[in-house]
Write a protein that binds this DNA or RNA. Structure first.
Ligand code: SF4
Ligand code: SF4
Lengths: 137, 137
DNA sequence: TTTAAATACTACTTGTAGGTGGTAAATAAT
DNA sequence: ATTATTTACCACCTACAAGTAGTATTTAAA
């Protein structure tokens, strides 16, 4: 019952770039600031770029920044690009053959929590996350 | 963001035995009824027995049943025996060095959901789970 | 006493998230 | 042009959850 670590990495770097728009940041700079393994962050950046969240400039002095055409980025977009949204669209366990009439043992307790989690994933965007904290990252 | 599959196995078999108290069930019988791999269920049963939830009778005609001294079994006990309770006692990400003043990017949204999840894990017991459904299992 | 059916235990296999390392290609500074 | 710094890409490694296989041990029925 936890988010994937890679998802937190992705959100961390996206929040960072969101709050530093207009400047290019290389993986080398960011991995120190955000405390994420260098090479692994490189792969995450590649994924996030492929998902359309970022603009890249290759070569010396290059780096990443938020895609200027993005006026909002919701958590579900990022989570979807990294670990998928199955847990929120279906359920934690995700048995394909289940329903209210044919539930697994966790259905009752989960169906109480599902809406809140779904709401937080679908209705929170990067602005909401970054504003409230003075992130060290 | 999902429970471990083994946790669902454990809850499934515990609910089943809870609702069939006073009779011994072998792994061979249960794995067919509950649709859990035979050998894997055997290991889960061994773990659950070690945690004190079950009484065992070895040998022919043997099997498992709920420990008669248990008048209630809460979900946190079972989850704790299988995958641990770190996610509920600490948080989804569980960084040791975090706090409200030093949060990770997910702290805000998670701290909205944490109480509800914690409540469901700590205040729901097997009676609550089994009563509501006509489980095929 | 023999046999069948059960748990107990150990080792192995598989799939995947997380992480490491090396190199090719791009590109700005020199 | 050369060099340094960067992304892009590919192959591999590691840890762990999930699942498989086989055997020793226990025990009741026959
Ligand atoms: S029965 Fe409910 S909790 Fe179980 S897998 Fe289906 S939707 Fe999820
Ligand atoms: S900062 Fe909050 S969400 Fe992040 S690891 Fe700590 S308690 Fe969890």
């Amino acid at each position: 019952m936890r988010f994937q670590k890679t998802t937190e990495y992705a959100l961390r770097v996206m929040v960072f770039l969101w709050n530093h728009q207009g400047e290019l940041y290389s993986v080398n700079r960011m991995h120190k600031i955000l405390n994420i393994p260098y090479k692994y962050l490189g792969r995450v950046m590649h994924t996030l770029t492929g998902a359309g969240f970022l603009e890249v400039q290759q070569g010396k002095m290059g780096g990443y920044q938020i895609n200027a055409q993005k006026s909002q980025i919701y958590l579900y977009e990022i989570i979807g690009a990294i670990e998928g949204l199955d847990s929120y669209e279906r359920c934690v366990l995700g048995f394909p053959e289940c329903s209210d009439e044919n539930p697994c043992t966790l259905h009752k307790i989960w169906s109480n929590q599902q809406p809140g989690l779904k709401d937080m994933v679908y209705n929170v965007c990067l602005n909401d996350l970054g504003a409230e904290y003075n992130l060290k990252y």
